[in-house]
Structure formats: structure tokens, C-alpha cells
Amino acid sequence: MPREFEITYNAENVYDDWVHDAHWQFLIIPVENESQYEVEIEFENSLFAHTEESINGFGFKTLRIHPKKKFKKITFEAKFKFKKEEVDPYNFYINPDISIAYNEMQSLDFKITHERYLKFTSFTTLDSEQKGLFKFNNSISIFDNLEALNHWVFEYIKFTTGVTEVGTPLKDVIFEKKGVCQDFAHLFAALARINGVPTRYVSGYLDQESGYMGDSQMHAWVEAFVPGIGWKGFDPTNNILANTNHIKVCHGKDYNDCAPLKGIIHSHGKHKTVHSVSVESQQ
């Protein structure tokens, strides 16, 4: 039996001065894939500006707003209803000859096919002395190494809000050993890529009913490509594999490819943005 989810996303933007021209793009719609489907979208804003659906450069659905009149405050509310199959993250087969997967990872074709998720971005670049923070053990499978990495990142960073922000470089996170889900995901991605595993940053929602860590905003985790198995989701913030409670929106190289809200606003003065997310589900 699939579970029925309902997600509510709220955002409020308040500006000191009049805003005459603004564009927003939301990347918050649950993606349709083999486990998530029948996604229904309701989207409203306080200015009753027309909402457009579009698809961004990486193929994910976006919502865009361009109000035609000036304003100082705007609120958005999105509701998504969809069904999701129970996900058993351990339902796969590992070939006992683990060298096959290691060899495949070394091949040029593999590196070319996955070049996007093997390269280092501004969010996933490590200093040379940090590159050895986590080394794979070649006597166990790639998957086992990734699970160990998941655990290692979980232990290494203490989940703390308010220490890092969107632009904090990874090396500062490593130094502070504190951060939020984005930082966990970026550190995992950086270390997995150094060890040759294509890894993508995933943005989405987490059903917190089950007592997982995160805050009442969007969640971030990673997917790593394991030869012979495919893309597997790891949530280093919670030291688990991604499961039914992880509702994926999109993936990319890092946060930049997945920013839930982009705004192009021409206004002077300060502004304040507040987001909140609630996830409800029933069987």
C-alpha cells in the first residue's frame, strides 16, 4: 500500500522598500519517479500573481512568479499531495566479487558518463590536507564503504543550526565540525567523489514524524552511484539510508543546482525571508 503524503511549504518575504520588479523561481515540487507519483500541485501567493510551471536547466519542474504590481510583502503557500511506495533501501544485490565494481569505477567510460557528479564544485572542494579525511577500504564493497562514510560524517559533524549559512565553505565546516543537513551532504559528496564515487546532492523533504533530525525546512542528503547497483540515497545527517520518509525534489552537483528559491529582486533596503515546511502522511 502506498502512503499518501501532503506537504505544505510556506514562505514570506518582507521588504523595507517598495519592490517594483521581482522574479521568483521555486524548486520545491516532489519529483515523479518510480516510488513517488501522482503529484498534485496547489500554489498560491498573497498578490494573486500568475504562477507559471517550467522546467529548469537540469530537467526539474519549477514554479515561477512575476508580480505585475509593486509590493512590500508577499507570502507563498504551496501544497503537494502525492503517493509514495514503501522504500526498502536494502533491497539490492552485491556481487561477491567486489573487484568488478572497483574496476568499473576506474574505467574511462564510467568517468565520462558520470563526470558531472565526479567533479568538484565550490561547495565540494577540500583543502589538500583534508582530502585524506576518509579513505576507502578496498577489501570491502563500495556500498559498505559508503555506509561507513555516512556514519563517519554523522559522527564528525554535530548538527547545529546557526553556525553555518548557505555560502559557508566546506573547509570551515570541517574546522568547526558543526553544521546543518547541507553541510553533511556536501562533506559526504566531497569525500565520496575523492574516492571515485559519483555523488549527487539531493534536495527534498523529510517526514519528521519518525523522529529524524533536520529542521522545519527543506532537507538535504546525497545519492551515490554504486556500480552494479545504481544510485543509492544516503542521509548522513541521520546516519541512515534514504527511505520512504525522504521525499526527493531534485538533485545536482551541490546546493547551487538545487536552491529551493531563487529571487531576482530590484529593491533597495533590507528584507527578511521566512520559510516553513510541514510534512504529513497517512497509510
Binding site: 522574479h23 523561481q25 522546467i55 529548469n56 512575476h66
Partner: peptide, 10 residues
């Protein structure tokens, strides 16, 4: 132009 690339890709 905001949204130009999406129009191009489409």
C-alpha cells in the same frame, strides 16, 4: 532575461 534558458531548452 529571467527564464530565458528554460524557453531555450524547450
Amino acid at each position: 532575461v529571467p527564464g530565458l534558458f528554460a524557453a531555450y531548452k524547450k
